[in-house]
Design a protein around this nucleic acid. Structure first.
Lengths: 210, 210
DNA sequence: GTCTATACGATGATAGAC
DNA sequence: GTCTATCATCGTATAGAC
């Protein structure tokens, strides 16, 4: 079995299991048996369970955040060209839409988006620390863009509203075919596109509230 | 040592550790040594680790949700008396404000609110299942109140927006003295009252978006 | 009834021989 | 790269002291 195949298969298996059960509840035994590799292969290829998690994040987050950055810069440049402020809605769309686009585009990406969602909201976890390190640059870009769009809003209010938006987004990332939020009778039947639009409408209104 | 003391001390210790480390990462040994009771005391008094979690939820959630229910009914009755629709803002305030009031009122309550926050957003976890069972009635009351306030909004849009609001709320429940959201440079210095108001403003605008 | 001491079987991560 | 051994820790059960 080639070295590349082994690493890939471990990454795929880890991504699925971390998303389903969380980092700490996923055992290396579960990962390696799903990937059909030896138990010790993880430590050989990645060094540790935590380093494996970092590799899982890195593989998908680098391209996803590159897309987000391009779209954000596009929004800002268009506004500058036309001599107007960027629209909050366009900024939020530039950040949120790639999440769900990406989620539909690649096999395994859905598990990954779920993993991000659960990582960002789990306090003091290994996964959160690792994730935020990858997210810091794009979140800086995002908050700067919002400051251009809402210059009269006090900076701390803007940042808290962005924090609330991230909470709403993260909560929405858990969706999968089996999703349901039983207390509200919500089911996964809603198509992704209109769900994305509902979320963008929601956070835009929240950011722009007077 | 009296029976009551032992149970209380186990509940207090479990609440702190579940909030800090999550259900699965917290061992009974950690709980019993923190509570200074014998390892077997948990199984004796509660039956199992999961039953202990249920008891932790029950102790604080029953009074908290009773307060929420009273305040929601007050809002609805006032509106009916005056022959007008209830205001979304008042409804959201009736649900959210007790959370943070409660959080400041009792020692240990802050840990509990953190525990709820992390439980609601962790998919497929034991804690989420247990929590939602306790939350179902009050969430039903809340969604009915919102339907009265926003009768022209399609029901599924209303429910998704409520779902987003819960995400924003849950994300905000993690706050403690040591809280910081490093990528946005957010710190815990903001006082709870204005934070509560910011959150209410945010979700109200989101619910009312056109 | 309450609590303690201890043991059991399962599973955790990892190190070293090959 | 793999296999095996090892050792820590897990939740739970039980026998018996008070």
């Amino acid at each position: 079995m080639s070295r590349l195949d082994t690493k890939q298969r471990i990454l795929d298996a880890a991504e699925q299991l971390f998303a389903r059960d969380g980092f700490h509840r996923t055992s290396l035994r579960a990962i390696t048996s799903k990937a059909k590799v030896n138990l010790a292969a993880v430590n050989y290829h990645f060094g540790s369970k935590k380093a494996l998690l970092e590799a899982v994040f890195e593989r998908r987050l680098l391209p996803l955040n590159r897309t987000r950055k391009e779209r954000l810069e596009e929004v800002l440049q268009n506004a500058r060209k036309r001599g107007v402020r960027p629209e909050v809605r366009d900024i939020m769309r530039a950040f949120i839409e790639p999440t769900f686009r990406f989620r539909e585009s690649e096999p395994g990406a859905q598990d990954f988006i779920k993993l991000i969602g659960r990582s960002i909201v789990t306090p003091d976890s290994t996964a959160k620390t690792v994730l935020l390190r990858f997210m810091k640059p794009i979140l800086k870009t995002l908050s700067e863009a919002l400051t251009e769009a809402l210059p009269e809003l006090p900076k701390d209010v803007l940042l808290w509203r962005l924090y609330f938006s991230i909470g709403a987004l993260a909560h929405t990332m858990h969706l999968d075919k089996r999703f349901q939020f039983e207390p509200l009778n919500l089911k996964a039947e809603t198509d992704v596109k209109s769900l994305t639009n509902m979320l963008i409408t929601f956070v835009t209104a929240g950011m722009e509230a007077s």
